[in-house]
Design a protein around this nucleic acid. Structure first.
Lengths: 320, 320
DNA sequence: TTGTATGCGTTATCAG
DNA sequence: CTGATAACGCATACAA
């Protein structure tokens, strides 16, 4: 089923069909001819071949989004935001989950170079290999020389969360940190180091409940004087709840906890977790917006998406 | 940067380069020539153009996975399982999130017909439009005439969960059901209707915490005699916890709750939610396996993935 | 073992 | 307003 079949079907040339389907019919093809072509195509079930179009035009009208862990609901929101915006602009989005494996990320760069994708949305620290500067790449939650970025106001969020704890009177604040060496986590750590009286008790963990539980257990055992925990992510916060439960610590009476991201999981914890709410979908939307400017030949300015501290039941004054 | 450039670079013909990169060099191209081609390609940073290859061969070596809500972590696991298997087989996976909108789903069928994808993994009930039978489509968690399916043993899981409640002595068991008209949910409802003494108290809800909370509130107010709740999904179960908390009902003393899926969220609830554990990643893996058989021209048998009831703290004997 | 020639389905240029 | 015709980059049958 090709444009030639359609052309034959309604007695026009193949190029006429092409004109109609590439939206360039306006003012060149008569309305009657166009209607005839469309209805013939409809009857035959014709769809323009994407591969041929991509080959000819050099544009695939598709982008790829690379995330480290699609299992974390934050990235679900991110994808949805990006996909909604992309769809509206006529782009498809392919999602690559690297499963926290740096190598996989660069595999996606190949998709770009292979012509399958017109641009990349990277939630990864590694600048793509061979980046000669001109490639349509937007980095999310990281800073890469040369590429525009979309990021959350992590500093602002972490500051707000920590000040909230300090205002409540906490001084011995532990940091349950992500083990990943990404700017977004570095910013959290920097805020902690800046605001919390030294020395900071810190443990690192994967962003998974069990790992966080173990790390929290260790941190709380090594530092029984801690009155509050700042967690790099709500999932980590959930792990901290598990650890607190095991140790017989009540939240917030014995231990205050703050999380980051505002995932669903933070709301079903008991008590609800005080957390920094980050709008993943908005971040995805903004990232695509930057990319589409890039694809249009423009030079977008990096953008920062605001976050907001939501004070819920997991924080209170330290015990007497 | 095309195969012609590479050919020129090392003084061979374009077809030689093609042979090397399509893996058909064995026994046809001398080792020395092949090495020369590869190193020239390396220097030039050459990648075969995917669009041209797809156009010529008629295969894109990509599939698309359609899910209703990537925000639900279950689908994250599903994607990861499918993607891992696909990668191993040399396929890329594009993810389309329909955001519970049936229409979007069929948009993905267009990707197939447009030649961007070689096959479809559909987590949707709608049989694709114009399915003439021969299209490489695998449906997940649904039964479609003509297409092989990968599904969870939902009946078995629901049976186990309900029998567990019945064994504990519960008789007045409410059903917090998904509002979506999908086979996977119909199977849950069927199990409830089969095992629970009539009349069954049932409320339907979206698979979102707030919606579930509201539905649970209503159900529990209308039927104060309920001693247990069977929830179609852990997210719904989490909403039930919120409602119980609001109504001052203790779990499991005043109300037993069981969920479905075994998401992270079920483990951080207090007490941990008794739930039917479904391995989304395995389901994704199996689905891709079926699709790859289909793509190879075979006729795969539909497969069922086992689930397991995990009894945790949210279920106990009814009061009094 | 390697090179030549051709076509995949589309878009784009140019005549008519 | 419409129709020939030439690429796009690769794979492959066939010739050498």
């Amino acid at each position: 089923m090709t444009s030639i079949d359609v052309a034959r079907r309604c007695g026009v040339s193949q190029s006429t069909v092409s004109l109609v389907f590439s939206g360039k019919a306006k003012g060149r093809i008569s309305a009657r001819t166009e209607a005839a072509v469309r209805s013939a195509a409809e009857e035959l079930g014709y769809r323009p071949n994407a591969a041929a179009r991509a080959l000819k035009t050099g544009a695939a009208r598709a982008i790829v989004l690379v995330v480290p862990d699609i299992t974390n609901p934050f990235f679900g929101g991110l994808l949805r935001g990006a996909q909604t915006a992309a769809r509206a602009a006529g782009y498809a989005v392919a999602l690559i989950d690297t499963d926290n494996d740096r190598e996989w990320g660069s595999a996606s760069a190949e998709a770009l170079r292979a012509g399958l994708a017109d641009g990349l949305l990277l939630f990864e620290v590694d600048p793509p290999p061979r980046a000669e500067g001109g490639e349509p790449i937007v980095v999310i939650e990281s800073e890469s020389r040369g590429h525009p970025s979309a990021r959350l106001d992590v500093e602002g969020g972490a500051d707000a969360a920590l000040r909230h704890l300090l205002d409540l009177g906490h001084r011995r604040i532990g940091h349950l940190a992500s083990g990943f060496d990404l700017p977004t986590f570095a910013a959290r750590a920097a805020a902690v180091d800046r605001l919390v009286p030294a020395p900071v008790a810190r443990a690192t963990t994967d962003l998974a409940i069990d790992a966080a539980r173990v790390a929290a257990l260790e941190l709380l055992r090594d530092h029984p004087d801690l009155t509050a925990l700042f967690c790099d992510d709500d999932v980590v916060g959930a792990g901290a709840y598990l650890a607190a439960r095991e140790l017989g610590l009540r939240i917030p009476d014995d231990l205050s906890v703050v999380g980051f991201d505002g995932l669903d999981i933070s709301r079903v914890l008991d008590p609800p977790l005080t957390t920094v709410i980050a709008d993943g979908a908005e971040l995805g939307r903004v990232a695509f917006e930057l990319l589409s400017v890039l694809l249009a030949g423009g030079q977008p300015r990096s953008r920062v998406v605001e976050v907001a501290l939501d004070v819920r039941g997991s924080t209170g004054p330290p015990r007497g």
